[in-house]
Design a protein around this nucleic acid. Sequence first.
DNA 1: TTTATATTTCAACTATTATTGAAAAATGAA
DNA 2: TTCATTTTTCAATAATAGTTGAAATATAAA
Lengths: 109, 109
Amino acid sequence: MDAVTALAALAQDSRLAIFRTLVQAGPAGLAAGRIGELTGIAPSSLSFHLKELAHAGLVAARPAGRFVIYTANFATMNALLGFLTENCCGGNPCAPVCTPACVSEKEST
Amino acid sequence: MDAVTALAALAQDSRLAIFRTLVQAGPAGLAAGRIGELTGIAPSSLSFHLKELAHAGLVAARPAGRFVIYTANFATMNALLGFLTENCCGGNPCAPVCTPACVSEKEST
DNA sequence: TTTATATTTCAACTATTATTGAAAAATGAA
DNA sequence: TTCATTTTTCAATAATAGTTGAAATATAAA
């Protein structure tokens, strides 16, 4: 995982909105068009940003008929959170360092 | 907290290295020059990036003699992590949603 | 096959960001 | 006061990113 790539993917209004929408949608995901409705992003722009998120490994695409279903990649998200807080305070007992924040059904193996 | 601002601040090699160094240094923080030594970033560039991080609320500066001590802002960091995972899977029982990853002494009140 | 729907691709434009080196400001020591 | 150290500011340069609208692709329905 490239943390800078993932962070850059999230560091943008449209993409952050898309990603959070998918996190909240859970492992079932949402069709591209539905994401567009929920976020108010134009199709062209939406496609661009979904690709950026996919490139960063933060979302996955799965064709379903003439729809494309996008889902958040919870493993990447958790890895990113872990990376940010890695070895916090030099490992000294400073806090409850608990990282995984969301685990989809498929990834709970 | 503006999440996009914080993410943008972290979405850059030098700044991510600086921030993680400060997270690991804990609440004691580090002088600017020491951060430069540890990360290999030139003074001018370092000053620029520290300001970006401070603007985003991710680090704080504290003068000490002719040094300036920088510290990570753990509250902002935790708020950011929480924002990313907010209402994960629509609130359904999908995972151990535990967010705070690091709490400095001063912020444990 | 024809039509409608869903999504992606492309080109053009505008705006923002990172780096460098030299100089300036602020503080403390001699 | 004079000198050395630490950090910040400034100007110039080079590279990257987001939006829009029209057209293209692909799948499904009539």
